Amino acid sequence: MRSGTALREALLRLLERRAFEQITVRDICAEAGVHYATFFRHHASKEALLDHVAADQMARLVELTMPIKESGDDRRAILVLCRYVEDHRVLWSVLLNGGAGATMRAEWLRYTRQVTGAANPDSWLPSELGTICTTSLIVETISWWLRQEKDAWPPDPIADIIHRLVTTSIASRGPIER
């Protein structure tokens, strides 16, 4: 267990200094103080380790935002999410725009499906499609934001953009005839 934690923390420290593509399994092991063979007892590859980090980050976002969302304050939940991403910008840039992009998007959608409430039967948008669209709006907006210059967009306006995108595009407008 300690080795697994050491490997995750080592990868995060290395990501602050270098691009994911420039990091080797040997680099991670050296940073973690773990033998090379130990790495492969925990992970099949450095990509698998990054996938594990992605899942950990999604769990952390859910932990931070769900109590706020459950209180009905979606805007504040989005703001907390954006501030967390900003505080961990290097990691999130790698997770969304680097080697774990596809995994991160799938993980985000999986978590969203888990925490989404009951479908609104009067909504014009099928529940599953609404979940996919909402998740995509959030993820792709954050991904875009992380590709911008560091101080070009602070978290607060990004949270406003996301909130407006989600509420104006997904808000109920009545059923669609089939």
Rank of each mutant, 00 (worst) to 15 (best):
M1T: 11
R2E: 14
L7N: 06
L11E: 07
R13G: 02
R18K: 15
A19G: 14
A19F: 08
Q22V: 06
Q22A: 14
D27A: 08
I28S: 01
C29Q: 05
G33S: 11
V34G: 02
V34M: 03
V34I: 11
A37N: 08
F40P: 00
H42N: 05
A44Y: 05
K46I: 04
E47K: 05
L49K: 01
L50M: 01
D51P: 04
D51S: 01
H52E: 02
A55W: 03
Q57G: 03
M58P: 01
A59C: 01
R60D: 03
V62Q: 05
V62Y: 06
E63K: 11
L64N: 04
T65L: 08
P67Y: 12
P67A: 11
K69D: 02
E70A: 14
A77H: 02
I78T: 10
I78F: 11
L79E: 07
D87F: 01
D87R: 12
H88K: 13
H88F: 06
R89T: 03
V90P: 02
S93D: 03
L95E: 00
L96W: 04
N97H: 07
G98K: 01
A100H: 00
A106K: 07
A106E: 05
L109F: 10
R110D: 03
R113Q: 15
G117I: 09
G117P: 04
A118L: 13
A119S: 13
P121T: 14
P126V: 11
S127Q: 15
L129D: 15
T131M: 14
I132P: 06
I132R: 15
T134C: 12
T135D: 00
S136H: 12
I138F: 07
E140Y: 13
W145I: 02
R147I: 07
R147C: 08
Q148L: 13
E149I: 09
W153F: 10
W153V: 10
P154D: 00
D156Q: 15
D160E: 15
V166W: 02
V166Y: 06
T167E: 11
A171S: 12
S172V: 05
S172R: 12
R173M: 11
G174N: 14
P175R: 15
I176K: 15
E177Y: 12
R178F: 11
